[in-house]
C-alpha cells in the first residue's frame, strides 16, 4: 500500500466514490466504523456479504469492497436469510435504515430475530425517510416535523432495541454516530458472534430531518447526541428512551441461543444419518 493511500482503501469500492450522502450525514461514520471493524478483526473479507435495502444508507453495500447486494425496499433481511442458509460459510451483514427495516421490512425483521438466523443487522436510524425528502417513518418522534407531518407527528415511534429484544435477538445495542469507538467495538463483537444481532445507530440527518426540527447542521445534531446520550449497559431495553433530553445507549443484550442455522444443520445431519442406517 502506498503511503498516500487511505488505510481502508482495500475495503472500499473506489469506482463507487464519491458517495451520495449529504454534508453532516452520519452514514459515512457508520461505513467507517464498519470497515474499521472488518480490518481490526482480520476477518476473511471474501466471506463477508453486505446486504442493504433502499434509502440513503442502502447505498452503503455498494461502497464496501465485499460481495454485496442492494435489494428492493425492505427485503434485505429476507435476501440475507436465503444467502446465509444456502452457504453457511458466509458472514451476512445487513446494513439498512429505520424505514426500510422496520416499516416496509418490519415483518422480516421480527421473524428473522425469532428464528435466530445468523445475520448481523446494523440499522441507521435517522428518524425519517431521508432519500424521498423527509417523510415521517416508524421511528419519527411524537410531535416531530416532517414533510408528511406538517402539523406535527401524531404517531408513537418504535423503540427499536426493545422490539429487537422482544423478537429474540441475541445481541442488542444502541449507539449514536458520536460513539464511534463503542460502535466499532459492537460491530467487531457481532461479526464474531453467531445469531441474530442488532445494532441501532442514531445518525444525524441535518439536511432533511434536522433543519425541520431546529437542528439544521450536523454539528447541532451531534451536540444533541452529546448532551442527551446516557450509557446504560445491560439495562432494560424497554426503558431505553429517546427524547430531546435523553438518548439511552449501550449494550443491552448479549446472550447465547442455538441459531436457526445450527438447528437446521443438526436436523439435516440426523435425517441423513437415519437414511444411511436404513440401508
Amino acid at each position: 500500500m502506498s503511503e498516500d493511500s487511505h488505510p481502508f482503501e482495500r475495503f472500499l469500492r473506489d469506482g463507487m466514490m464519491p458517495h451520495i450522502w449529504c454534508e453532516g450525514c452520519g452514514n459515512g461514520i457508520i461505513l467507517n466504523c464498519f470497515v474499521r471493524a472488518l480490518k481490526d478483526i482480520e476477518i476473511d473479507v471474501n466471506k463477508v456479504v453486505v446486504v442493504s435495502g433502499i434509502g440513503c444508507i442502502g447505498r452503503l453495500s455498494g461502497y464496501t469492497n465485499t460481495d454485496s447486494y442492494h435489494t428492493t425496499h425492505g427485503r434485505a433481511i429476507a435476501f440475507a436469510t436465503g444467502a446465509k442458509l444456502a452457504n453457511p460459510e458466509l458472514k451476512t451483514v445487513v446494513i439498512s435504515g429505520d424505514g426500510d427495516l422496520f416499516a416496509i421490512g418490519g415483518n422480516h425483521f421480527i421473524h428473522a430475530a425469532r428464528r435466530n438466523v445468523d445475520i448481523q443487522v446494523i440499522c441507521a436510524n435517522n428518524f425519517n425517510y431521508g432519500m424521498t425528502g423527509g417523510q415521517y417513518g416508524p421511528t419519527t418522534p411524537l410531535k416531530a416535523w416532517t414533510t408528511t407531518t406538517p402539523y406535527g407527528n401524531i404517531e408513537h415511534p418504535f423503540n427499536l432495541v426493545h422490539l429487537a429484544a422482544a423478537s429474540g435477538a441475541v445481541y442488542v445495542a444502541r449507539w449514536t454516530t458520536l460513539h464511534v469507538r463503542r460502535l466499532t467495538e459492537s460491530i467487531k463483537k457481532v461479526l464474531q458472534k453467531e445469531g441474530f444481532s442488532f445494532i441501532e445507530v442514531i445518525t444525524p440527518c441535518p439536511e432533511i430531518y434536522g433543519r425541520r426540527n431546529k437542528m439544521a447542521t450536523g454539528i447541532e445534531m451531534m451536540n444533541w447526541f452529546k448532551t442527551a446520550a446516557e450509557i446504560r449497559n445491560a439495562s432494560d431495553p424497554a426503558e431505553a428512551e429517546i427524547s430531546p433530553e435523553k438518548i439511552v445507549v449501550g449494550e443491552f443484550i448479549d446472550a447465547e441461543k442455538p441459531t436457526y442455522d445450527h438447528l437446521l444443520r443438526e436436523m439435516m445431519k440426523q435425517v441423513q444419518e437415519r437414511i444411511r442406517g436404513e440401508k
Binding site: 435489494t71 436465503g82 444467502a83 442458509l85
Partner: peptide, 21 residues
C-alpha cells in the same frame, strides 16, 4: 435447505439470496 418464510415477499427475496450464494 427448506425454509418457511413469513410471507411471499420474503420467500422470493430468500430465493434470490440463495441463488446468489
Amino acid at each position: 435447505v427448506y425454509v418457511q418464510m413469513e410471507d411471499e415477499l420474503g420467500s422470493m427475496a430468500a430465493v434470490i439470496g440463495a441463488s446468489y450464494a
